[in-house]
């Protein structure tokens, strides 16, 4: 069942159309990453999904209902981590979380328990007495995440959680998201780090106000390159292979051969071809080259930056 569904979602501010008919579906229990260049409308889309913004046109359903019509009961099922730190710098870490737990209607005993659990989960329990304004930016982001999950929401909206964080902290955040996903929660996350798309179950690429591609990271990669690459390293000059290239062209496309040397100074030919499914085609490719001295064969995965670049350029 879809936790989030958007069809033909249009959002205009004045005369400017920021979202131009977004179609989107996020299944329950998955991490859905929304990536896109700066100014693509990621935050606008997220705000439209949380109910903070009303769509100008189109339909949005979150947990089976239009989010702008959410009552307190539906809102308790949703958590939201905004892009910046919006809690109170004058309050302590625990006071901030206590406040948010109160907003979501957690009663005293439960609140106490959940505040502790959540602070331990984001590793802030030891810093609970510190004033939020005095802790590091990373801690503030973790506190903000704690505020989004303290009431154990089914669906979590997270807007650029790892922006401006160091790689170690970013990795920790993603571990926490996966942990939450494993508990059965749905996570909708936007990020400006394209590489983080790899960490999502499914990814939507937003560009120019529209979803230009959506699917698993591999599906997007496939979509960006039109298939998967197989790369063979064969001993000898490329001229030796010329008469056998016809076999490869029957198995794939974009066959490319170039010469080079290995570490010992021996001549090596690098053969690359694009296939629809590398796992199924690799045995056939190896069979076609069984006469040659194959030093290595692999299926290289292009970086998501490359995927992103290609998809956006195509758009």
């Amino acid at each position: 069942m879809a936790a989030i569904r958007a069809e033909g979602l249009v959002k205009r501010f004045g005369g400017e159309e920021v979202l131009k008919g977004v179609d989107l579906s996020v299944e329950e229990g998955e991490i859905f990453g929304l990536i896109g260049p700066s100014g693509a409308g990621k935050s606008t889309l997220m705000r439209s999904l949380t109910g903070y913004l009303s769509p100008t046109q189109g339909e949005v359903e979150v947990l089976g209902r239009a989010p702008v019509a959410f009552g307190p009961k539906e809102k308790r099922r949703v958590g939201y981590m905004p892009q910046g730190f919006v809690l109170y710098g004058q309050l302590s870490v625990r006071q901030n979380l206590n406040f948010v737990a109160g907003l979501y209607g957690l009663r005293f005993g439960e609140r106490r328990r959940r505040v502790r659990e959540t602070l331990e989960f984001v590793e802030l329990w030891e810093h609970r007495r510190k004033v939020a304004g005095d802790v590091s930016g990373g801690m503030q982001r973790r506190l903000q995440l704690a505020a989004a999950i303290v009431h154990e929401p089914e669906l979590l909206f997270v807007d650029e959680p790892t922006a401006n964080l160091d790689p170690i902290l970013r990795r920790r955040f993603w571990e926490e998201f996966r942990s939450l996903r494993d508990e059965g929660r749905t996570i909708f996350v936007t990020t400006q780090y394209v590489g983080e798309a790899e960490l999502c179950d499914r990814v939507g690429l937003l560009a120019g106000g529209s979803i230009v591609a959506a699917g698993t990271p591999d599906e997007l990669r496939h979509q960006a390159f039109g298939g998967e690459n197989i790369e063979l390293h064969v001993a000898g000059e490329p001229s030796r292979l010329t008469e056998h290239l016809g076999l490869l062209e029957d198995l794939g496309s974009d066959v490319e051969v170039r010469g080079g040397q290995n570490g010992k100074g021996e001549a090596v030919s690098v053969v690359r071809l694009l296939v629809d499914d590398a796992d199924s085609k690799l045995p056939e490719v190896l069979k076609a080259f069984d006469w040659a001295d194959i030093r290595s064969a692999n299926v290289p995965k292009p970086s998501f930056d490359e995927v992103f670049f290609r998809l956006v350029r195509e758009q």
Binding site: V78, P82, L103
Partner: peptide, 13 residues
């Protein structure tokens, strides 16, 4: 401060 956006998504009326 952005807190209001957070409140809007929360059950706080």
């Amino acid at each position: 401060s952005g807190a209001y956006e957070f409140f809007e998504v929360s059950p706080l009326r």
